[in-house]
């Protein structure tokens, strides 16, 4: 786990260290098992193609969970992810690199808590943002 970051260390506009994932078909099946989402679109290529897509697709919620990991890898044990939201905008296929990225958009103190807001997204090899979203984080402060 990365070393602890503090509210004071983070500037607006700062980039979150990117997380690179290489999603395999096996991982889609593992995620289907863990989630109980057995929709064939995500592991049966014939079925997927019959719906007009080129191959099985990476689950939207799997990508959302990866954005969760992007944040928890970054904020350390003392940080807290309080909110995550994203849209499943574009299709991602297994076998491709999926980049999880983010950027700090705002920092503020409210009710004694030190908040960081970020935009987060997954990015396909063409550089398109396939799962754009936002995350709200509480970080520890050096001040106490």
């Amino acid at each position: 786990m990365a070393k602890q970051i503090f509210y004071e260390d983070i500037e607006e506009g700062a980039e979150i260290p990117a997380l690179t994932k290489h999603i395999t078909r096996r991982q889609l099946v593992m995620w289907a098992g863990a989630s109980g989402d057995y929709y064939e679109l995500h592991y049966d290529k014939d079925f997927a193609q019959s719906t007009g897509v080129p191959d099985v697709l990476v689950h939207g919620r799997l990508k959302a969970a990866l954005l969760g990991q992007l944040i928890t890898d970054w904020i350390g044990e003392e940080g807290r992810l309080t909110k995550l939201s994203c849209s499943y905008r574009g299709m991602d296929l297994p076998g491709e690199d999926l980049l999880c990225k983010g950027k700090v958009t705002k920092k503020y103190v409210k009710d004694g808590e030190h908040y960081i807001e970020c935009e987060v997204w997954t990015q396909n090899p063409k550089g398109e943002r396939t799962t754009p979203g936002t995350a709200t984080i509480v970080l520890p402060s050096r001040g106490r």
């Binding site: 719906t51 939207g60 919620r61 959302a64 807290r80 992810l81 309080t82 909110k83 995550l84 939201s85 994203c86 849209s87 499943y88 979203g133």
Partner: peptide, 13 residues
């Protein structure tokens, strides 16, 4: 007939 997941939002309290 067709169903698509559009997005999600989670608050962790």
């Amino acid at each position: 007939q067709r169903l698509l997941a559009g997005g999600g939002e989670w608050e962790f309290l």
